[in-house]
Design a protein around this nucleic acid. Structure first.
Length: 431
RNA sequence: UCCGGUGUAGCUCAAUCGGCAGAGCGGGUGACUGUUAAUCACUAGGUUGUAGGUUCAAGUCCUACCACCGGAGCCA
């Protein structure tokens, strides 16, 4: 009786018989030789059949087996330099679990629309598989980073009563007899949490009903949002820099095969090292002016502007002190320059844009009330939020890291839609 | 929402000035003992996105609509 094994551990079984369970990824052959590429979710291995060495019915079963048919396959594991992964399986027996119908995704090229319509199947493909494995590593790194620093996970609600930031469009849903909105950020809920636990973070999906049609936007995306009490802008930046460099380190350490599958330029990621460059808005504006951008001083940066700025550096660059009026109401103004916010955006290299936005929060009750009024937001909705400034208010801050943009950057993908299992976009709710 | 682009076989694409609807891959049949997107031979496969218009003749020109792609704004 052969042992059950996963393809990723086959190297430990060289010289032994094993049974693997998986799907037929691809098939080639040459006369009496048949090569079956088998995948089981942990890897891919080549199974070899030579007609004269196996039972006739075993060969015949495999000869016309369609792509993605599921099977149990028993064979002898042998070392073979010709095989990717260093070993292959000499087939002895095969049990077909299901003969697949004609599989739509062939090893040849396909267009975006077709692949996105078949996203549920596309996830089986090599590169998509690698992206999701890297996404997993990134998410796990985020959790480990904060957990190791003594943060407490404080999940934010998905249903919210009002706009967190006022400006962007929210998805409205019926909540019994009233209106609710899908959250666009957990941050407001983290601030009271920081006052209870000192250091907290939330990790979850967020929703934006913006009709954005770009490579950097999804309507549903994931964010990790830490919030820390007794924390100023610089300490906040230290935390952000530590997180991102830790993520990059972990991915380089544990997901090198996947990066190679994706043909990612690994040397570019290896250049990402603390300390990250820190510049303020004025310096960023100067870079844009020198590059001949049409950027207007006082405005927020456009996507193209972010690329120009980040191209100046190998590591992500942190841009601080934006004009207060282009930032959210809860940002604290710089006491030295009241027209500026104590905020930071982290721009990823290679044109991947903003992966982090955050800053120090307004901690003075009266100032915050004035800001809410100025932004024309419903005061009642923020009563609980204002309480943070009434009972032992302290300087505090935090940020949000966009998971999909981070995955997109580390995987070298041109579009965030490939970095989440089932993307939700302006014109896509399926599958 | 605005600007630009593309819709032809299951998939990726070609079709010259408006003049017979094509190829590769995938599917099927067969050959081949080391393939890696194998190769070779044969074969099936079409309401050219939808509706209308111009013309002897429309995949090709015109109008509207639909779908998708890229970008802008907004943001992570």
């Amino acid at each position: 009786m052969a042992a059950k094994a996963f393809i990723s551990e086959l190297k430990d079984y060289i010289g032994q018989d094993v049974t693997i369970s998986g799907w037929l990824y691809n098939k080639t052959g040459k006369g009496k030789l048949l090569f079956l590429m088998i995948r089981d979710g942990t890897g891919i291995v080549q199974a070899v059949l030579f007609k004269n060495n196996v039972e006739e019915d075993v060969f015949e079963k495999c000869e016309h087996l369609p792509q993605e048919s599921s099977l149990h396959i028993t064979g002898h594991v042998v070392e073979d330099k010709r095989a990717k992964g260093g070993c292959e399986l000499q087939v002895k027996e095969i049990q077909v679990v299901h003969v697949a119908e004609e599989y739509p995704i062939t090893p040849k090229e396909h267009g975006t629309e077709f692949l996105m319509d078949h996203r549920h199947l596309w996830l089986r493909s090599n590169k998509q598989h690698a992206i999701i494995k890297i996404r997993h590593e990134i998410i796990k790194s985020c959790r480990d980073y904060f957990d190791n620093l003594g943060f407490t996970l404080l999940d934010a609600p998905i249903f919210t009563p009002a706009a967190c930031e006022g400006t962007t469009n929210l998805f409205e849903v019926n909540y019994f007899d009233e209106k609710a909105y899908l959250t666009q950020s957990g941050q407001l809920y983290m601030e009271p949490g920081a006052m209870a636990f000192g250091k907290v973070y939330c990790f979850g999906p967020t929703f934006r009903a913006e009709k954005s049609k770009t490579r950097r936007h999804l309507t549903e995306f994931w964010m990790v949002e830490p919030e820390v009490a007794f924390c100023d802008l610089n300490q906040n930046m230290d935390l952000a820099e530590g997180l991102v460099s830790y993520i990059v380190e972990r991915v380089l350490e544990n997901k090198r095969d996947e990066l190679e599958t994706l043909e990612r330029d690994i040397s570019a990621l290896e250049k990402v090292k603390k300390p990250f460059p820190r510049i303020d808005y004025d310096e960023a504006a100067k870079i844009l002016k020198e590059a001949g951008s049409e950027f207007v001083f006082g405005d927020d940066f456009g996507g193209g502007d972010e690329t120009i700025i980040s191209d100046k550096f190998d590591s992500p660059v942190m841009v601080t002190h934006y004009p207060a009026n282009v930032k959210a109401f809860y940002m604290k103004n710089d006491p030295q320059r009241p027209d500026r916010a104590l905020c930071v955006d982290m721009l990823a290299p290679e044109g991947y844009g903003e992966i982090i936005g955050g800053g120090q929060r307004e901690d003075d009750y009266e100032t915050l009330v004035q800001k809410i009024k100025k932004h024309d937001l419903p005061m009642d909705s923020f009563k609980w939020y204002l309480d943070v400034r009434r009972y032992g208010s302290v300087p505090h801050g935090g940020f949000g890291l966009g998971i999909e943009r981070t995955v997109s950057w580390l995987c070298g993908r041109s579009h965030v839609r490939e970095t989440i299992p089932y993307p939700r976009m302006l014109y896509r709710l399926y599958p």
